[in-house]
Design a binder for these strands. Structure first.
Length: 416
RNA sequence: GGAGGGCUCGCACAGUGGCCUAGUGCGGCGGUCUUGAAAACCGCUGUUGGGUGAUCCCCAACCGUGGGUUCGAAUCCCACGCCCUCCGCCA
Protein backbone atom coordinates (compact mmCIF):
# COMPACT_ATOMS: atom_id res chain seq x y z
CA UNK A 1 0.00 0.00 0.00
CA UNK A 2 1.42 3.30 -1.09
CA UNK A 3 2.13 6.09 1.41
CA UNK A 4 -0.64 8.69 1.24
CA UNK A 5 1.65 11.40 2.50
CA UNK A 6 4.03 10.89 -0.41
CA UNK A 7 1.16 11.10 -2.86
CA UNK A 8 -0.11 14.31 -1.27
CA UNK A 9 3.25 16.00 -0.97
CA UNK A 10 4.97 14.68 -4.04
CA UNK A 11 2.43 13.52 -6.62
CA UNK A 12 4.84 14.02 -9.48
CA UNK A 13 7.18 11.45 -8.07
CA UNK A 14 4.35 8.94 -7.97
CA UNK A 15 3.30 9.84 -11.51
CA UNK A 16 6.87 9.30 -12.70
CA UNK A 17 6.93 5.90 -11.03
CA UNK A 18 3.68 4.94 -12.74
CA UNK A 19 5.08 6.09 -16.07
CA UNK A 20 8.25 4.05 -15.81
CA UNK A 21 6.20 0.96 -14.90
CA UNK A 22 3.96 1.52 -17.87
CA UNK A 23 1.05 1.90 -15.44
CA UNK A 24 -1.79 4.40 -15.39
CA UNK A 25 -0.73 7.88 -14.24
CA UNK A 26 -4.36 8.94 -13.89
CA UNK A 27 -4.70 6.72 -10.82
CA UNK A 28 -2.66 9.30 -8.91
CA UNK A 29 -5.19 12.05 -9.50
CA UNK A 30 -7.99 9.63 -8.67
CA UNK A 31 -6.30 8.92 -5.35
CA UNK A 32 -5.82 12.61 -4.58
CA UNK A 33 -9.48 13.29 -5.29
CA UNK A 34 -10.58 10.36 -3.11
CA UNK A 35 -8.34 11.66 -0.33
CA UNK A 36 -9.81 15.14 -0.47
CA UNK A 37 -13.36 13.83 -0.48
CA UNK A 38 -12.65 11.60 2.45
CA UNK A 39 -11.15 14.37 4.55
CA UNK A 40 -14.18 16.58 4.00
CA UNK A 41 -16.57 13.75 4.85
CA UNK A 42 -14.63 12.75 7.95
CA UNK A 43 -14.60 16.31 9.28
CA UNK A 44 -18.35 16.51 8.91
CA UNK A 45 -18.95 13.18 10.62
CA UNK A 46 -16.57 14.13 13.44
CA UNK A 47 -18.33 17.37 14.27
CA UNK A 48 -21.78 15.78 14.05
CA UNK A 49 -20.69 13.06 16.43
CA UNK A 50 -19.29 15.69 18.76
CA UNK A 51 -22.60 17.49 18.79
CA UNK A 52 -24.45 14.25 19.43
CA UNK A 53 -22.18 13.46 22.34
CA UNK A 54 -22.78 16.82 24.00
CA UNK A 55 -26.51 16.61 23.48
CA UNK A 56 -26.61 13.04 24.78
CA UNK A 57 -25.08 14.23 28.04
CA UNK A 58 -27.68 16.93 28.49
CA UNK A 59 -30.46 14.42 27.86
CA UNK A 60 -29.34 12.30 30.78
CA UNK A 61 -29.20 15.24 33.17
CA UNK A 62 -32.25 17.13 31.87
CA UNK A 63 -35.31 17.89 33.96
CA UNK A 64 -38.55 16.08 33.03
CA UNK A 65 -39.95 19.15 31.20
CA UNK A 66 -36.84 19.71 29.08
CA UNK A 67 -36.44 16.10 28.21
CA UNK A 68 -38.98 15.61 25.40
CA UNK A 69 -37.66 18.56 23.39
CA UNK A 70 -34.07 17.44 23.74
CA UNK A 71 -34.95 13.89 22.78
CA UNK A 72 -36.61 15.08 19.61
CA UNK A 73 -33.55 17.05 18.61
CA UNK A 74 -31.35 14.07 19.53
CA UNK A 75 -33.35 11.79 17.27
CA UNK A 76 -32.90 14.16 14.39
CA UNK A 77 -29.19 14.30 15.03
CA UNK A 78 -28.98 10.53 15.22
CA UNK A 79 -30.23 10.17 11.65
CA UNK A 80 -27.79 12.84 10.49
CA UNK A 81 -24.90 11.08 12.21
CA UNK A 82 -25.93 7.78 10.69
CA UNK A 83 -25.96 9.31 7.21
CA UNK A 84 -22.61 11.02 7.75
CA UNK A 85 -21.08 7.77 8.95
CA UNK A 86 -22.37 5.94 5.90
CA UNK A 87 -20.74 8.63 3.77
CA UNK A 88 -17.54 8.15 5.70
CA UNK A 89 -17.58 4.40 5.17
CA UNK A 90 -18.02 4.90 1.46
CA UNK A 91 -15.23 7.50 1.32
CA UNK A 92 -12.90 5.24 3.34
CA UNK A 93 -13.54 2.33 1.01
CA UNK A 94 -13.06 4.49 -2.08
CA UNK A 95 -9.79 5.82 -0.73
CA UNK A 96 -8.50 2.40 0.15
CA UNK A 97 -9.38 1.05 -3.26
CA UNK A 98 -7.62 3.96 -4.97
CA UNK A 99 -4.63 3.45 -2.71
CA UNK A 100 -4.39 -0.27 -3.39
CA UNK A 101 -4.57 0.28 -7.13
CA UNK A 102 -1.18 1.97 -7.16
CA UNK A 103 1.90 -0.27 -7.05
CA UNK A 104 5.00 0.52 -5.04
CA UNK A 105 7.18 3.49 -5.95
CA UNK A 106 9.94 2.34 -8.25
CA UNK A 107 13.42 2.90 -6.85
CA UNK A 108 15.69 5.38 -8.63
CA UNK A 109 17.92 3.66 -11.15
CA UNK A 110 15.58 0.83 -12.13
CA UNK A 111 15.73 0.30 -15.89
CA UNK A 112 12.55 1.42 -17.67
CA UNK A 113 10.61 -0.91 -19.96
CA UNK A 114 9.23 -4.45 -19.82
CA UNK A 115 10.33 -8.05 -19.45
CA UNK A 116 13.10 -7.87 -22.05
CA UNK A 117 14.52 -4.55 -20.90
CA UNK A 118 16.47 -5.85 -17.92
CA UNK A 119 20.06 -4.70 -17.46
CA UNK A 120 22.77 -7.28 -16.84
CA UNK A 121 24.79 -6.07 -13.88
CA UNK A 122 27.43 -8.78 -13.85
CA UNK A 123 28.31 -12.13 -15.37
CA UNK A 124 30.09 -14.57 -13.08
CA UNK A 125 31.85 -17.89 -13.51
CA UNK A 126 32.84 -20.01 -16.47
CA UNK A 127 30.17 -21.39 -18.73
CA UNK A 128 30.83 -25.12 -19.19
CA UNK A 129 31.65 -26.22 -22.75
CA UNK A 130 29.92 -29.46 -23.68
CA UNK A 131 29.63 -31.08 -27.09
CA UNK A 132 26.14 -32.51 -26.61
CA UNK A 133 24.61 -31.43 -23.31
CA UNK A 134 21.64 -33.47 -22.15
CA UNK A 135 18.61 -32.09 -20.35
CA UNK A 136 18.20 -32.48 -16.62
CA UNK A 137 15.14 -34.68 -17.13
CA UNK A 138 17.19 -37.26 -18.97
CA UNK A 139 20.06 -37.13 -16.51
CA UNK A 140 17.65 -37.24 -13.59
CA UNK A 141 15.92 -40.30 -15.01
CA UNK A 142 19.25 -42.08 -15.57
CA UNK A 143 20.30 -41.37 -12.00
CA UNK A 144 16.92 -42.52 -10.70
CA UNK A 145 16.61 -39.06 -9.16
CA UNK A 146 13.60 -37.53 -10.85
CA UNK A 147 10.37 -39.27 -11.88
CA UNK A 148 8.02 -36.91 -13.70
CA UNK A 149 5.96 -39.67 -15.29
CA UNK A 150 4.80 -41.00 -11.97
CA UNK A 151 4.46 -37.42 -10.78
CA UNK A 152 1.92 -36.92 -13.56
CA UNK A 153 0.20 -40.22 -12.83
CA UNK A 154 -0.29 -39.37 -9.18
CA UNK A 155 -0.77 -35.60 -9.21
CA UNK A 156 -0.88 -34.37 -12.79
CA UNK A 157 1.31 -32.31 -15.07
CA UNK A 158 4.09 -30.27 -13.46
CA UNK A 159 4.41 -32.67 -10.52
CA UNK A 160 7.33 -34.97 -9.82
CA UNK A 161 8.84 -37.44 -7.43
CA UNK A 162 12.38 -37.00 -6.21
CA UNK A 163 13.77 -40.45 -5.53
CA UNK A 164 17.04 -41.90 -4.31
CA UNK A 165 19.86 -39.47 -4.94
CA UNK A 166 17.27 -36.89 -6.02
CA UNK A 167 15.67 -36.94 -2.59
CA UNK A 168 19.09 -36.79 -0.98
CA UNK A 169 20.00 -33.84 -3.18
CA UNK A 170 16.98 -31.93 -1.95
CA UNK A 171 17.87 -32.50 1.69
CA UNK A 172 21.51 -31.65 1.01
CA UNK A 173 20.62 -28.36 -0.68
CA UNK A 174 18.20 -27.39 2.07
CA UNK A 175 20.81 -28.14 4.72
CA UNK A 176 23.51 -26.25 2.86
CA UNK A 177 21.23 -23.24 2.43
CA UNK A 178 20.09 -23.29 6.05
CA UNK A 179 23.68 -23.63 7.26
CA UNK A 180 24.69 -20.56 5.27
CA UNK A 181 21.67 -18.62 6.50
CA UNK A 182 22.35 -19.47 10.12
CA UNK A 183 26.02 -18.57 9.78
CA UNK A 184 24.93 -15.21 8.36
CA UNK A 185 22.65 -14.49 11.29
CA UNK A 186 19.25 -15.54 9.99
CA UNK A 187 16.81 -17.28 12.29
CA UNK A 188 15.79 -20.58 10.71
CA UNK A 189 12.02 -20.96 10.38
CA UNK A 190 9.77 -23.75 9.23
CA UNK A 191 6.75 -21.80 8.02
CA UNK A 192 3.15 -22.82 7.33
CA UNK A 193 2.24 -23.28 3.69
CA UNK A 194 -1.42 -22.40 4.27
CA UNK A 195 -2.37 -18.85 5.19
CA UNK A 196 -5.45 -16.77 5.79
CA UNK A 197 -6.86 -14.41 3.16
CA UNK A 198 -5.75 -11.21 4.89
CA UNK A 199 -2.15 -12.38 4.99
CA UNK A 200 -2.17 -13.37 1.33
CA UNK A 201 -3.80 -10.07 0.51
CA UNK A 202 -1.41 -8.06 2.64
CA UNK A 203 1.64 -9.39 0.86
CA UNK A 204 0.17 -8.28 -2.46
CA UNK A 205 -0.37 -11.68 -4.06
CA UNK A 206 -4.09 -11.33 -4.58
CA UNK A 207 -3.77 -8.39 -6.92
CA UNK A 208 -2.70 -8.89 -10.50
CA UNK A 209 -1.42 -12.40 -9.77
CA UNK A 210 -4.47 -13.79 -8.01
CA UNK A 211 -4.85 -16.45 -10.71
CA UNK A 212 -1.46 -17.86 -9.69
CA UNK A 213 -2.61 -18.71 -6.20
CA UNK A 214 -4.24 -21.93 -5.02
CA UNK A 215 -7.27 -21.33 -2.84
CA UNK A 216 -8.99 -23.80 -0.55
CA UNK A 217 -12.55 -22.59 -0.87
CA UNK A 218 -13.98 -24.83 1.86
CA UNK A 219 -11.60 -23.45 4.45
CA UNK A 220 -10.91 -19.87 3.36
CA UNK A 221 -7.20 -20.58 3.18
CA UNK A 222 -4.58 -20.08 0.51
CA UNK A 223 -1.55 -22.18 -0.38
CA UNK A 224 1.52 -19.98 -0.39
CA UNK A 225 3.63 -19.57 -3.52
CA UNK A 226 6.58 -18.66 -1.32
CA UNK A 227 7.28 -18.61 2.41
CA UNK A 228 7.68 -14.84 2.00
CA UNK A 229 3.94 -14.75 2.62
CA UNK A 230 4.09 -16.47 5.98
CA UNK A 231 7.27 -14.65 7.01
CA UNK A 232 5.74 -11.26 6.20
CA UNK A 233 2.57 -12.20 8.05
CA UNK A 234 4.64 -13.43 11.01
CA UNK A 235 4.96 -9.92 12.45
CA UNK A 236 1.73 -8.45 11.08
CA UNK A 237 0.04 -5.97 13.43
CA UNK A 238 3.17 -5.73 15.57
CA UNK A 239 5.49 -2.96 16.64
CA UNK A 240 9.03 -4.27 16.33
CA UNK A 241 11.44 -2.97 18.97
CA UNK A 242 14.64 -4.40 17.49
CA UNK A 243 15.68 -4.21 13.88
CA UNK A 244 16.90 -5.74 11.71
CA UNK A 245 15.10 -9.07 11.96
CA UNK A 246 16.20 -11.75 9.54
CA UNK A 247 14.45 -15.07 8.93
CA UNK A 248 15.31 -17.97 6.69
CA UNK A 249 12.05 -19.76 5.98
CA UNK A 250 11.65 -23.25 4.63
CA UNK A 251 8.33 -24.29 3.19
CA UNK A 252 6.66 -25.96 0.29
CA UNK A 253 5.50 -23.52 -2.38
CA UNK A 254 2.52 -23.92 -4.65
CA UNK A 255 1.87 -22.15 -7.93
CA UNK A 256 -0.95 -22.67 -10.37
CA UNK A 257 1.23 -21.55 -13.28
CA UNK A 258 -1.87 -20.24 -15.01
CA UNK A 259 -0.89 -18.65 -18.28
CA UNK A 260 2.40 -20.49 -18.61
CA UNK A 261 1.05 -23.26 -20.83
CA UNK A 262 3.75 -24.57 -23.08
CA UNK A 263 6.58 -22.94 -21.08
CA UNK A 264 9.13 -25.29 -19.55
CA UNK A 265 6.82 -28.27 -19.88
CA UNK A 266 9.65 -30.74 -19.45
CA UNK A 267 11.27 -31.48 -16.15
CA UNK A 268 11.16 -29.68 -12.86
CA UNK A 269 12.06 -26.12 -13.78
CA UNK A 270 8.48 -24.88 -13.66
CA UNK A 271 6.28 -26.95 -11.36
CA UNK A 272 3.12 -26.57 -9.30
CA UNK A 273 4.90 -27.51 -6.12
CA UNK A 274 8.46 -27.18 -4.85
CA UNK A 275 10.33 -26.54 -1.63
CA UNK A 276 12.28 -23.38 -1.02
CA UNK A 277 14.54 -21.69 1.48
CA UNK A 278 13.73 -18.00 1.48
CA UNK A 279 15.48 -15.10 3.21
CA UNK A 280 13.24 -12.42 4.66
CA UNK A 281 14.38 -9.18 6.31
CA UNK A 282 12.61 -6.56 8.35
CA UNK A 283 14.71 -3.37 8.46
CA UNK A 284 14.32 0.35 9.13
CA UNK A 285 13.04 2.16 6.05
CA UNK A 286 16.31 3.98 5.41
CA UNK A 287 18.24 0.70 5.57
CA UNK A 288 16.28 -1.04 2.83
CA UNK A 289 18.52 -0.24 -0.08
CA UNK A 290 21.64 -1.51 1.69
CA UNK A 291 19.84 -4.62 2.90
CA UNK A 292 18.81 -5.35 -0.66
CA UNK A 293 22.47 -5.38 -1.68
CA UNK A 294 23.28 -7.67 1.23
CA UNK A 295 20.53 -10.12 0.22
CA UNK A 296 21.89 -10.15 -3.31
CA UNK A 297 25.38 -10.82 -1.95
CA UNK A 298 24.09 -13.77 0.12
CA UNK A 299 22.31 -15.19 -2.90
CA UNK A 300 25.54 -14.92 -4.86
CA UNK A 301 27.43 -16.62 -2.05
CA UNK A 302 25.08 -19.59 -2.39
CA UNK A 303 25.43 -19.68 -6.18
CA UNK A 304 29.22 -19.52 -5.79
CA UNK A 305 29.17 -22.40 -3.31
CA UNK A 306 27.35 -24.46 -5.96
CA UNK A 307 30.06 -23.48 -8.48
CA UNK A 308 27.53 -22.27 -11.03
CA UNK A 309 28.04 -19.77 -13.85
CA UNK A 310 25.42 -17.07 -13.59
CA UNK A 311 24.51 -13.50 -14.30
CA UNK A 312 22.83 -10.87 -12.15
CA UNK A 313 20.09 -8.83 -13.76
CA UNK A 314 18.35 -5.63 -12.72
CA UNK A 315 14.72 -6.30 -13.58
CA UNK A 316 12.98 -3.56 -15.57
CA UNK A 317 10.24 -1.46 -13.99
CA UNK A 318 7.43 -2.94 -16.07
CA UNK A 319 8.32 -6.45 -14.93
CA UNK A 320 8.31 -5.72 -11.19
CA UNK A 321 5.63 -7.14 -8.94
CA UNK A 322 3.30 -4.57 -7.42
CA UNK A 323 5.05 -4.72 -4.03
CA UNK A 324 8.61 -4.42 -5.32
CA UNK A 325 10.49 -1.15 -5.68
CA UNK A 326 13.40 -3.00 -7.23
CA UNK A 327 14.23 -6.59 -8.07
CA UNK A 328 17.46 -8.41 -8.86
CA UNK A 329 17.35 -11.89 -10.36
CA UNK A 330 20.18 -14.36 -10.54
CA UNK A 331 20.04 -16.47 -13.64
CA UNK A 332 22.22 -19.56 -13.86
CA UNK A 333 23.53 -21.18 -17.00
CA UNK A 334 21.70 -24.23 -18.34
CA UNK A 335 24.01 -25.87 -20.93
CA UNK A 336 21.24 -27.93 -22.53
CA UNK A 337 19.27 -24.76 -23.18
CA UNK A 338 22.29 -22.61 -23.97
CA UNK A 339 20.69 -19.94 -21.83
CA UNK A 340 20.62 -18.30 -18.44
CA UNK A 341 17.52 -19.17 -16.43
CA UNK A 342 16.21 -17.60 -13.23
CA UNK A 343 17.22 -19.42 -10.05
CA UNK A 344 16.80 -16.74 -7.42
CA UNK A 345 15.14 -13.37 -7.06
CA UNK A 346 15.39 -10.66 -4.44
CA UNK A 347 12.93 -7.81 -4.03
CA UNK A 348 13.00 -4.63 -1.99
CA UNK A 349 9.40 -3.98 -0.99
CA UNK A 350 10.35 -0.87 1.02
CA UNK A 351 7.44 -0.02 3.35
CA UNK A 352 4.79 -1.12 0.86
CA UNK A 353 4.01 -4.55 2.36
CA UNK A 354 4.54 -3.44 5.93
CA UNK A 355 2.06 -0.61 5.61
CA UNK A 356 -0.63 -3.01 4.53
CA UNK A 357 0.26 -5.64 7.12
CA UNK A 358 0.61 -2.95 9.79
CA UNK A 359 4.18 -3.75 10.79
CA UNK A 360 5.88 -0.81 12.45
CA UNK A 361 8.79 0.22 14.59
CA UNK A 362 9.30 3.08 17.02
CA UNK A 363 10.79 5.94 15.06
CA UNK A 364 11.69 9.54 15.80
CA UNK A 365 8.21 10.72 14.90
CA UNK A 366 6.19 7.97 16.45
CA UNK A 367 5.50 4.60 14.92
CA UNK A 368 6.70 4.20 11.37
CA UNK A 369 6.29 1.33 8.95
CA UNK A 370 9.34 -0.90 8.52
CA UNK A 371 10.77 -2.05 5.20
CA UNK A 372 10.51 -5.69 4.15
CA UNK A 373 12.76 -7.49 1.71
CA UNK A 374 12.90 -11.02 0.45
CA UNK A 375 15.40 -13.10 -1.45
CA UNK A 376 15.58 -16.71 -2.59
CA UNK A 377 18.36 -18.74 -1.11
CA UNK A 378 17.43 -22.00 -2.76
CA UNK A 379 14.39 -22.94 -4.80
CA UNK A 380 15.10 -26.64 -4.58
CA UNK A 381 13.57 -28.27 -7.65
CA UNK A 382 14.89 -25.70 -10.07
CA UNK A 383 18.30 -25.77 -8.40
CA UNK A 384 18.46 -29.55 -8.76
CA UNK A 385 17.55 -29.15 -12.43
CA UNK A 386 20.34 -26.64 -12.85
CA UNK A 387 22.93 -28.69 -10.96
CA UNK A 388 22.30 -31.78 -13.09
CA UNK A 389 22.39 -29.76 -16.29
CA UNK A 390 25.29 -27.50 -15.38
CA UNK A 391 27.58 -30.07 -13.75
CA UNK A 392 26.94 -33.00 -16.13
CA UNK A 393 30.03 -34.74 -17.40
CA UNK A 394 30.60 -36.26 -20.87
CA UNK A 395 30.55 -39.75 -19.32
CA UNK A 396 27.04 -39.25 -17.92
CA UNK A 397 28.07 -38.61 -14.33
CA UNK A 398 27.36 -35.40 -12.45
CA UNK A 399 29.98 -33.40 -10.60
CA UNK A 400 29.15 -32.54 -6.99
CA UNK A 401 30.35 -29.09 -5.88
CA UNK A 402 32.69 -29.28 -2.90
CA UNK A 403 30.39 -27.35 -0.56
CA UNK A 404 27.58 -29.84 -1.08
CA UNK A 405 29.66 -32.98 -0.50
CA UNK A 406 29.49 -32.98 3.30
CA UNK A 407 25.73 -33.26 2.94
CA UNK A 408 25.97 -36.14 0.46
CA UNK A 409 28.27 -38.47 2.34
CA UNK A 410 31.36 -36.99 0.73
CA UNK A 411 30.41 -38.02 -2.82
CA UNK A 412 32.28 -36.18 -5.57
CA UNK A 413 30.34 -37.62 -8.49
CA UNK A 414 26.78 -38.83 -8.96
CA UNK A 415 26.09 -41.78 -11.27
CA UNK A 416 29.16 -43.84 -10.59
C1' G B 1 -16.86 -33.44 15.07
C1' G B 2 -19.16 -32.47 20.37
C1' A B 3 -19.35 -29.59 25.24
C1' G B 4 -17.81 -25.50 28.11
C1' G B 5 -14.83 -20.94 29.28
C1' G B 6 -12.59 -16.59 27.45
C1' C B 7 -11.01 -12.07 24.12
C1' U B 8 -10.79 -4.57 27.74
C1' C B 9 -4.40 0.68 26.36
C1' G B 10 3.02 -3.68 27.00
C1' C B 11 1.26 -7.63 31.00
C1' A B 12 -2.61 -9.05 34.87
C1' C B 13 -7.35 -7.77 35.99
C1' A B 14 -12.06 -4.32 37.18
C1' G B 15 -16.02 -2.49 34.69
C1' U B 16 -24.08 -5.53 33.05
C1' G B 17 -27.21 1.09 29.34
C1' G B 18 -25.73 7.81 30.67
C1' C B 19 -20.85 10.06 37.04
C1' C B 20 -16.52 5.38 31.36
C1' U B 21 -14.01 11.74 29.11
C1' A B 22 -12.53 3.40 30.10
C1' G B 23 -10.29 2.48 35.99
C1' U B 24 -6.72 -0.38 39.30
C1' G B 25 -2.17 -3.09 39.92
C1' C B 26 2.41 -4.44 37.53
C1' G B 27 6.02 -2.99 34.09
C1' G B 28 8.35 1.24 31.68
C1' C B 29 9.98 6.60 31.65
C1' G B 30 11.05 11.15 34.49
C1' G B 31 11.66 13.37 39.37
C1' U B 32 12.33 13.84 45.02
C1' C B 33 15.50 11.41 48.60
C1' U B 34 20.66 8.86 48.56
C1' U B 35 27.97 8.70 48.26
C1' G B 36 25.52 5.09 44.78
C1' A B 37 21.42 1.79 44.60
C1' A B 38 16.95 -0.27 46.63
C1' A B 39 12.56 1.12 49.12
C1' A B 40 9.09 4.99 49.69
C1' C B 41 6.67 9.12 47.57
C1' C B 42 5.22 12.40 43.22
C1' G B 43 4.29 12.88 37.97
C1' C B 44 3.98 10.76 33.01
C1' U B 45 2.63 6.38 30.10
C1' G B 46 -1.78 3.09 24.00
C1' U B 47 -3.38 3.32 18.75
C1' U B 48 -5.71 5.67 14.41
C1' G B 49 -7.93 9.68 11.67
C1' G B 50 -8.90 14.95 11.26
C1' G B 51 -7.94 20.37 12.39
C1' U B 52 -4.25 25.02 6.23
C1' G B 53 -1.38 19.79 12.82
C1' A B 54 4.80 17.93 12.20
C1' U B 55 6.98 15.74 19.98
C1' C B 56 2.54 21.04 22.59
C1' C B 57 -2.97 22.11 21.68
C1' C B 58 -8.25 20.91 20.02
C1' C B 59 -11.91 17.31 17.95
C1' A B 60 -13.37 12.35 16.72
C1' A B 61 -12.76 7.03 16.67
C1' C B 62 -10.86 2.45 18.89
C1' C B 63 -12.90 -2.53 24.72
C1' G B 64 -11.60 -9.70 19.15
C1' U B 65 -14.36 -8.58 14.00
C1' G B 66 -18.87 -7.19 11.47
C1' G B 67 -23.98 -6.00 11.84
C1' G B 68 -28.37 -4.55 14.94
C1' U B 69 -31.43 -2.19 19.12
C1' U B 70 -31.21 2.91 21.50
C1' C B 71 -31.32 9.93 21.95
C1' G B 72 -26.98 7.23 24.04
C1' A B 73 -23.50 0.57 23.93
C1' A B 74 -17.23 -2.07 26.73
C1' U B 75 -22.21 -3.16 28.80
C1' C B 76 -28.24 -5.59 25.44
C1' C B 77 -29.27 -8.72 20.63
C1' C B 78 -27.39 -11.48 16.07
C1' A B 79 -23.44 -13.53 13.12
C1' C B 80 -18.42 -14.65 12.67
C1' G B 81 -13.10 -15.13 14.10
C1' C B 82 -9.39 -16.55 17.39
C1' C B 83 -7.49 -18.60 22.07
C1' C B 84 -7.98 -22.08 26.28
C1' U B 85 -10.03 -26.68 28.77
C1' C B 86 -12.39 -31.42 28.28
C1' C B 87 -14.40 -35.55 25.09
C1' G B 88 -14.07 -38.13 20.32
C1' C B 89 -10.95 -39.14 16.00
C1' C B 90 -5.95 -39.07 14.35
C1' A B 91 0.26 -38.59 12.09
Amino acid sequence: MIDLKTVRENPDRVRASQRVRGADEGLVDGLLAADETRRAVVSRADSLRGEQKTLGRSVSTASPDERPGLLERAKELATQVKAAEADQDRADAALREAQLAIPNLVEDGVPPGGEDDFVTLETVGTVPQLAAPREHTEIGADLGAIDTERGAKVSGARFYFLTGIGAQLELALVNLAMAQAERTGFTPVIAPALVRPEIMEGTGFLGAHAAEVYRLADDELYLVGTSEVALAGYHSNEILPDLPLRYAGFSSCFRREAGSYGKDTKGIIRVHWFDKVEMFSYVAADEARDEHQRLLAWEREFMDSLELAYRVIDVAAGDLGSSAARKFDIEAWFPSQGAYRELTSTSNCTTFQARRLNIRTKGEHGNEPVATLNGTLCAVARTIACLLDHHQQPDGTVYVPAALRPYLGGRELLGT
